[in-house]
């Protein structure tokens, strides 16, 4: 299958006073359409930086990202913004729902930003899909953390983006809510052929993916094809690799 998203020798340096930190060191990486990829690694390994660069939220120090063969480098801020708007959906750890909008309005927001009139049916279908059909007019503060994250997922899916980037989507949720979120992401991938890239610390969450990419010190150190694990459970396999990395 063709790579929908590709990182070419991606590097990112942060300058903190006189100290330069290499967050990513020449990462080469590609993701195929309809794939569910988890990115794991110890704190400071560069996984969030990689996600930000893949989503066009930040610029690399060197290297480039290609989405459907189109290079990010050289694109204007508005061009990158349009890519984020129409081709990428974001799910944040802290949900980032607008407190002034209802659940339905939050879901419809990306379409509104794009100057489109969201049909109530589309929004209602998405809310039903995430199990919040009866929370249509609730505002974020009237929803639990898990419910808010599900609204955020619906918001990420409303434009039917090719790629969904999720940054620790279960990081702030209890295990039951976390599982519901993972199920939704899995369904988006399986039923709608959407590409999911998820940064996580959670072995169990990572085990939901098709492939797990492990980062350490700004570089990819291991990759697990979750369909090829044998003997152990998927979660145990991920945990074992992580344990090695954290040694």
């Amino acid at each position: 299958m063709a790579a929908v998203l590709q990182a070419e020798k991606l590097s990112k340096q942060y300058h903190m006073g006189t100290v330069t930190v290499d967050a990513l060191r020449g990462v080469d990486f590609h993701i195929e359409a309809g794939e569910f990829v988890a990115i794991m690694g110890p704190s400071g390994s560069g996984k969030s930086t990689l996600l930000h660069l893949l989503g066009g939220l930040d610029n690399p120090t060197s290297g480039d990202v290609l989405l459907d063969g189109r290079r990010y480098r050289g694109m204007s801020d508005d061009q990158l913004t349009l890519i984020r708007r129409r081709q990428i959906g974001f799910i944040f750890q802290f949900f980032n729902l607008l407190p002034t909008l209802t659940a339905a309005e939050n879901v419809a927001l990306p379409l509104v930003i794009d100057g489109k009139r969201p049909t109530p049916e589309r929004v209602a279908d998405l809310l039903a899909l995430i199990g919040l059909g009866d929370r249509h007019d609730h505002r974020p503060h009237q929803l639990s953390g898990g419910q808010q994250q599900r609204v955020a997922i619906a918001r990420a899916l409303v434009t039917q983006p090719k790629i969904v980037l999720a940054d620790e989507p279960t990081g702030n949720l209890d295990s039951q809510s976390g599982q519901a979120v993972l199920d939704l992401l899995r369904r988006a991938c399986d039923e709608h052929d959407q590409t999911i890239i998820m940064v996580t610390h959670d072995h169990h969450a990572a085990a939901t993916a098709d492939r797990v990419v492990f980062l350490k010190d700004g570089g990819i150190v291991n990759t697990l094809d979750m369909n090829m694990t044998d003997g152990k459970t998927r979660t145990q396999t991920v945990a074992a690799v992580m344990a090695d990395l954290e040694l």
Binding site: G55, D77, D78, T81, L82, R84, P110, I113, D114
Partner: peptide, 13 residues
Amino acid sequence: QQIGGLRALGMTR
């Protein structure tokens, strides 16, 4: 943070 979120969702400057 909210404005950053909107920018991430595709709102232009």
